[in-house]
Amino acid sequence: MDLFLQQLVNGLAVGATYSLFAVGFSLVFASMGILNLAHGTFASWGAIVALLVVTSLDIPFWLALVVGVVAAGLIGVIVDQFGFQPLRGRDSGSLGLIITSIGFWLILLELGLMVNGPNALSFPDSQLKTSRFSLAGISVSGPQMLSIVALIVVGLAMWLFMTRTRFGSAIRAVGYDRTASMLGGIEPRKIIIVTAFLAAGIAGLAGVLSGLATNNVSSQLGEGMLLKGFAAVVVGGFGDIRGAIVGGLLIGVFEVLGAEYISSGLRDAVTFGLLFLFLIVRPSGIFGEVRHERA
């Protein structure tokens, strides 16, 4: 039982980073209707910038974390304004947006490889990395605790922001019908810029926390998070913050428990087996709306 509880906590910690990433992914889809395949690179760049700041300027990790998040957010805005904004209002269709996101994905991936190098790096040892907390025989590391706390704070804040504020309502209105939102006095471009910054910044936060927990900061860091984040959004329901959180946690728990009790080689297979199951049983996701076709 102790082993199961320990792995359950480990799974929640891993799932917390997936959930954070998925929250940003979900924000983009809710406001722009874009499946942004470059989103994983925002996580990579958040971790890369934070590591560069820590090692070159010798500043505290907490400040480097903020710098990494802001840098990822700004990269997200640049990608949106130079990549997606010119296509809005044109008959480019979703295929044009996906191709554009793939282009920026490859560009940012190669730039990350040039800056960070081919090998995975790690954050310097700190009090946070070496600290551990124990409760009833369950051990939680400092990075794991930070990931779980960050998910609680960011997830709750974003859910309240999207459901209880006028700006959150404006984001949902722009995602539902951009033209109608303009008639209601909303400036879609302003809304989209802020959303792009928030979504990419949250992905950057997930990347920094993942790099800290796994000692793996590289240009490839966000690639796995992109797949797991997409799966989390599908399982939870597209465009729903609650769904992104629950979906990410489920995937993290199933991934870790599957590796422990089935096979570590089937870690990804367990994740996408869960995704496949939801696509069959409930394709709209846990919190998604079920649409019934009329005969």
Results as ranks from 00 to 15, higher is better:
Arg172Val: 03
Ile193Gly: 08
Ser263His: 13
Arg189Lys: 04
Ser169Cys: 01
Asp91Arg: 15
Ile193Leu: 13
Ala136Met: 11
Gly93Leu: 05
Leu111Glu: 14
Leu63Ser: 08
Leu121Cys: 02
Thr130Phe: 04
Gly229Trp: 04
Gly285Val: 04
Phe4Ala: 11
Gly15Lys: 00
Ile171Thr: 12
Pro188Thr: 03
Arg178Tyr: 04
Asp177Cys: 02
Phe123Trp: 01
Leu146Val: 13
Ile107Trp: 06
Pro86Glu: 15
Val217Leu: 14
Ala30Leu: 08
Leu51Gly: 00
Arg88Pro: 00
Gly24Gln: 05
Ile245Asn: 03
Phe254Gln: 08
Gly83Pro: 11
Leu221Trp: 06
Leu109Gln: 15
Val53Ile: 12
Gly175Pro: 07
Gly33Gln: 06
Val256Ser: 13
Glu255Leu: 02
Leu183Ala: 08
Leu63Met: 05
Ile171Asp: 02
Leu109Trp: 15
Thr271Glu: 13
Leu113Arg: 15
Ala50Ile: 06
Arg189Ile: 15
Gly248Asn: 06
Arg172His: 08
Ile280Gly: 09
Phe21Gln: 01
Met145Cys: 08
Gly73Ala: 10
Leu87Arg: 05
Ile171Val: 15
Arg189Met: 05
Ser101Arg: 11
Arg291Phe: 06
Ala47Ser: 04
Leu221Gly: 13
Gln220Ile: 15
Phe276Trp: 06
Leu275Pro: 01
Gly175Gln: 12
Thr165Asn: 05
Ile152His: 09
Ser44Leu: 14
Gly273Gln: 11
Val174Tyr: 01
Thr214Trp: 14
Gly252Asp: 03
Ser169Leu: 11
Phe238Arg: 12
Met32Pro: 04
Ile193Thr: 07
Val235Leu: 10
Glu289Pro: 00
Gly236Leu: 12
Asn116Ile: 14
Ile192Arg: 00
Ala231Trp: 10
Leu37Asp: 11
Leu277Cys: 13
Arg132Ile: 03
Arg178Cys: 09
Ser264Val: 00
Ser147Lys: 10
Ile59Lys: 05
Ala72Asp: 11
Pro124Cys: 04
Val194Ser: 07
Ile34His: 01
Leu146Cys: 07
Ser219Gln: 15
Ala22Leu: 01
Tyr176Ile: 03
Thr271Phe: 11
Ile186Lys: 10
Asn116Ser: 15
Val154Glu: 07
Ile186Pro: 06
Leu8Ala: 01
Arg172Trp: 02
Ile102His: 04
Val53Pro: 00
Val290Asp: 08
Ala50Trp: 07
Tyr176Phe: 07
Lys129Arg: 14
Pro283Phe: 00
Gly224Arg: 08
Ala150Ile: 14
Arg267Glu: 09
Lys129Tyr: 06
Thr55His: 08
Ala120His: 13
Glu293Trp: 11
Phe82Gln: 04
Met32Trp: 10
Ala259Gln: 12
Ile241Thr: 14
Val290His: 11
Ile152Asn: 09
Leu51Phe: 10
Ile241Ala: 08
Val217Asp: 15
Ser92Asp: 02
Ile48Ser: 01
Phe287Gln: 02
Leu227Thr: 11
Arg242Glu: 03
Leu51Ala: 02
Phe230Met: 05
Asp125Glu: 11
Val149Gln: 03
Gly68Val: 12
Leu87Ser: 09
Leu37Val: 13
Ala64Leu: 04
Ile48Tyr: 05
Ala199Thr: 08
Met158Ser: 10
Lys228Glu: 14
Val233Met: 07
Gly252Glu: 01
Leu266Ser: 14
Ile75Gln: 09
Asn10Gln: 07
